[in-house]
Design a binder for these strands. Sequence first.
DNA 1: AATGAATGAGCATTCATTCAT
DNA 2: GATGAATGAATGCTCATTCAT
Lengths: 206, 206, 206, 206
Amino acid sequence: MAHNNDRTSARRAQILTAAAAVFARHGYHGARMDDIVKESGLSKGALYWYFKGKEELATALVHHMLTAETQTLDRLLAQDAPAAERLEQLVRGFARELDDNPHRAPLAQELLALAQTIPDIRSCYSAHHDRYHEQLRTLLLQMNSTQSPAGGAPDHRIDDAALALLCVVDGMVLRWTLSTPTSRFDLEDRLWAAVSGIVRGMDAPA
Amino acid sequence: MAHNNDRTSARRAQILTAAAAVFARHGYHGARMDDIVKESGLSKGALYWYFKGKEELATALVHHMLTAETQTLDRLLAQDAPAAERLEQLVRGFARELDDNPHRAPLAQELLALAQTIPDIRSCYSAHHDRYHEQLRTLLLQMNSTQSPAGGAPDHRIDDAALALLCVVDGMVLRWTLSTPTSRFDLEDRLWAAVSGIVRGMDAPA
Amino acid sequence: MAHNNDRTSARRAQILTAAAAVFARHGYHGARMDDIVKESGLSKGALYWYFKGKEELATALVHHMLTAETQTLDRLLAQDAPAAERLEQLVRGFARELDDNPHRAPLAQELLALAQTIPDIRSCYSAHHDRYHEQLRTLLLQMNSTQSPAGGAPDHRIDDAALALLCVVDGMVLRWTLSTPTSRFDLEDRLWAAVSGIVRGMDAPA
Amino acid sequence: MAHNNDRTSARRAQILTAAAAVFARHGYHGARMDDIVKESGLSKGALYWYFKGKEELATALVHHMLTAETQTLDRLLAQDAPAAERLEQLVRGFARELDDNPHRAPLAQELLALAQTIPDIRSCYSAHHDRYHEQLRTLLLQMNSTQSPAGGAPDHRIDDAALALLCVVDGMVLRWTLSTPTSRFDLEDRLWAAVSGIVRGMDAPA
DNA sequence: AATGAATGAGCATTCATTCAT
DNA sequence: GATGAATGAATGCTCATTCAT
């Protein structure tokens, strides 16, 4: 019977959504379980019926977000548009989503910070980084072979570029999140500019 | 009386060192004031005599670290070695220092995370980002004009590259900090590879 | 319909057995209803269908154990063996049963402790004490008249001896239960030695 | 400086007294730390400054009570009154004290029950039992040699009697504590009667 | 009869901060 | 300046019990 599972995952989602909201508002440490309970509309007992505790809440949230990200990239890799186009789509889509959901970025930073302290979360991120790196390398390889049938950039260049891409994204989101109203920049433009630069550098002569 | 001030700054330094150690070990939230007291070898009353509270401890620590970073870069800008060389020196020096001080990176991440929550710390980072961006832009301009007297890359390219450089550094340190013994990479090599890529991309044709 | 009652008492017995096991393992306060549910193999709803709550579980258990004890003594009193022999049988049988069932003694102590707190249980024990005292006095009277047709010990001596017997049993079980592997003594031997001493003292001249 | 220690032990005593009162009233499990705090007149922080937690409170209390008991017996053994007289003094004094302090007995039972659950407390009681048994054996030996210079009862009889004495005391206090107003008996008389019986039985012929 | 999801009052403990000495 | 005992609000979590199904 899927009934039971449906109910269960509905409840878990309900709670996770509430937790995400409260974590985004007050940070993980500033969030009280009571706040999440209130936000979820359930009772404290229900929350603890579905999740073992505060840490599991955070871990589940991380898992959820990273899984979604991986799937997005998977979908992109499976498309048959030119690789360069797909990369741009990825980057701009990513930036736009953050831009449109003001809570996403602070929440993500908050959860990321927990990786320092909570081993399960650390593992999630580690695994995700590796997986994402691999996916990106694949995309860059496709770009490279398409662009210049002759071969283009050597493999190590591609590898480095993939890593740089990953890092520049993380770093820029962080900077953007921390920017003040005064110093705030346009995430999409600047991120794409940075990515373009790295891609150009991939093929350029030393 | 300078005596007084000496004593005072010695005590403050002593406490900050202790706080840095404990924050690195347990994270900001996991650190108890008692731990810091014990680590510092002073008494609880003394700690509160020199610092208003836990937040001020963190803020002072951030201030200290960011100031040091700015000064390093300032010193570099004032040298008369070729700009490209100075950039490499900066990046490699930065990487090596992290590599040699295992606590530095986790501590930095922890403090960075506080920027989300503690306004004073957020301001510190915002200001530092802007300043650092400016300094880096200056360095890249020097490289550009040196390399190709004709002019080389247009200004907006340089600006983008400076930002990308900043972000790629932050992002890579983060990734490196989170990497497992298995997936750990060589920070200096990879960071320099990324930086090189971005610099190459700065001048490369679209 | 006896069907109904059979099912009912079967279920109740099933639950009580589970409760006894869990109380013996974790103590009354350390036992969670969930543990008892799991141990019983039934559902939480079922448990609460047959018992009003945790206290009733304990009360029923006490009732059950004390009733069994009374019946044992009743059976013994009805036998036609010499009184002295029956007393020895009683004491040794009692000791052996505890020796053979490692959980019995801690469970009994735990339930006894509840008498301080739970009025219903206190009443059970009070009543049982009186009843048991009476039964034991009867047995001692039989011994006395058998042994020395002339009359032997005066009544008040018999009464005191009966009480002493009761107390020495309780006290020794307690001590035995609390004894460490190192200091553990042979319950049957020592208990019988104590009982013999008291019986001897009953007839002995001041 | 004894100042510090004085203050410390005063506070600890203050807290322990409060804990004893509350434990006697509500039992260990029924007692809330807040109650003890209120009763002590201190603050919650102070309580936790002097005691690690609820368990340590109980353990310290047990320690305190058992130490006092041992000392009483030690004092008795050191006196030069006839042994028989000292035994009577011990038993009657013990009974009277319980009779005069209505809280003592329930508190003692409550703490004793914790021995089943809390290892530290169990150890306290185990050690105390052994020590007390030894002290009592010594006293009985003195009685025996005094009474009949020829030698009197054999050693194993004395050992058994000592154990029986210990047990009968524990058991009778328990029964007395559990007795209802209706069935309540005079502790001093009955206890002394039981003890006398055991002592008589010690020397009596089989 | 039976299930198990849901409830929520209750509670021990922590820890940043203060202040009398 | 320095000490460390004292404060008490804050909080994550438990678990006996209920009740819709």
